[in-house]
Design a protein around this nucleic acid. Structure first.
Lengths: 147, 147
DNA sequence: TATTGTTATACTCTATAACTATA
DNA sequence: TATAGTTATAGAGTATAACAATA
């Protein structure tokens, strides 16, 4: 097996993959404990700020028609509301209600596995992780290129 | 809003959530570029070593009957094979074929967004990230407790 | 004309339950 | 009897296409 890449890259990718898998498992378990599907919880957790339906579809990598149905249910449950954007009346901004925001916070709070893992780090390493992830986050997202 | 938690925790959780979302988007795009659904690609990428069907169901947080169908398709496509475990003839170990392993590697290789982000880090920070994630990974997984 | 969001439809995915084989 | 995997079925989720409203 030839190895022309820098030595850290393959190992890092594998470790990253495993971590994200663990994160997903923990997230799903937390969502289900709150009577939410993974999609519903993902959507709710995106609403720290109001977002247009189309934005949400892109973030979840799914069709816009799908978002309509998910938001329908979350709205029936009183967790989100639709507000027409005055700046462009075609757009509907989805905002979390107080209860919706509380449940979104609960999803993250109930991710016991992740919290336990993070608690095992020294404070310095936690800060280091946060800084590195923050830098990674401030990069052009894959699918969201504004042509 | 009261804040009794350590200051780094909420910020870290939010950053972590966003990173894992970006990872998922990039992973899905890479999978689709190889004519794989997200589930099929996830399963294929779990087969660095042979695994029993039941293990795979747990890793993907889905029912075992579902794994049967996914493996059926991957097998028809020549990407995996089922081998009865001699130690327990009820168990079927799923192993990736050479082509399956190559495609699994391709999935990771095609995650352009993640690679670009990682490339933006200094080598020292990449090593730091790898070490931290490695430590996080060596912790009791949430759903996999051997009661 | 292009875009946002919705509706109707068909297709796929996923879980539930019953079954076979092995332990 | 308990467990691993499969099969058949029903329910939920997802995408496609046509539509209404706004730009």
């Amino acid at each position: 097996m030839p190895r022309s890449s820098p030595p850290v890259a393959p190992d890092l990718m594998a470790t990253l993959a495993q971590f994200c898998r663990t994160y997903q498992q923990d997230f799903l378990a937390a969502a289900q404990s709150l009577d939410l599907t993974g999609s519903h919880a993902s959507l709710l957790c995106l609403l720290a700020e109001p977002r247009a339906m189309r934005e949400l579809a892109e973030s979840l990598s799914c069709d816009a028609s799908n978002i309509t149905l998910i938001i329908d249910r979350l709205e029936q449950r009183g967790l989100v509301e639709r507000h027409i954007d005055p700046a462009d009346r075609r757009v509907k901004k989805v905002v979390a209600t107080a209860e919706g925001a509380a449940i979104a916070a609960q999803v993250h709070a109930r991710m016991r596995g992740i919290h336990a893992a993070l608690d095992s780090l020294t404070p310095a390493r936690r800060r280091s992780l946060r800084d590195i992830l923050h830098q990674l986050g401030s990069h052009p997202a894959p699918g969201t290129d504004p042509a």
